[in-house]
């Protein structure tokens, strides 16, 4: 597997604790920018980024409009906005209608990341209760990037990974522990 220049992780119901666990175990030397898209309610202020930033060595922050994407940083899509990746490797935000009832929609970030980073984009789709992310993952695949799907059998809620596999049955599937290992190995691969 080619070392990606961006890693995008999408998750919803049943994957929050996995993402927290994953981010806590990623080595400090991890230099690939990591973008996390989770579905959450914009009406409640969550301090997830601040809390993680204090707890782990890598920088954790909410992605800001027109911010240049930097190595060694973990970005969260802000609640209530779609997060897009521009062809000049900056973020932009968009408040257009929700997609798959979601804003941020995983599809939007995955699709724009795929086009900007082409075959150097890696997308991971975890447990979730709707279809968001399946089309975006397909787009990453079309541009030659790597797509990894959490095993629907293991996922707390299988709808989201299953939707990706329905669209493209050949996506490789992994258990959460395997995914974690793959991500940690990315740190040291060339």
């Amino acid at each position: 597997m080619k070392k990606p220049e961006i890693l995008c992780i999408g998750g919803s119901a049943g994957s929050y604790h996995l993402i927290l666990d994953l981010l806590a175990t990623i080595p400090t030397q991890f230099q690939i920018p990591l973008v996390v898209i989770i579905h959450r309610n914009e009406r409640y202020d969550s301090k997830i980024e601040e809390n993680l930033d204090k707890r782990i060595a890598l920088r954790v922050k909410v992605a800001e409009d027109k911010e240049a994407i930097q190595a060694g940083t973990i970005y969260f899509a802000p609640a209530g906005y779609h997060l897009l990746i521009e062809p000049d490797f900056t973020f932009s935000l968009d408040i257009s209608a929700p997609l798959n009832f979601c804003r941020p929609a995983i599809d939007v970030t995955f699709e724009t990341a795929a086009e900007a980073y082409q075959d150097l984009c890696c997308g991971i789709l975890l447990s979730g209760a709707n279809q968001d992310g399946a089309k975006g993952l397909m787009r990453i695949h079309e541009f030659g990037g790597n797509c990894l799907v959490q095993d629907p059998v293991e996922a707390e809620i299988s709808t989201m990974p299953q939707a990706a596999l329905t669209l493209w049955p050949a996506h490789p599937i992994y258990t959460y522990n395997e995914l974690k290992k793959i991500i940690i190995q990315m740190t040291y691969s060339n």
């Binding site: 027109k66 897009l84 521009e86 932009s92 968009d94 257009s96 939007v108 086009e115």
Partner: peptide, 9 residues
């Protein structure tokens, strides 16, 4: 205009 967003629309 921001290109990714414009292109989507």
């Amino acid at each position: 205009y921001s290109k990714a967003s414009l292109k989507r629309r």
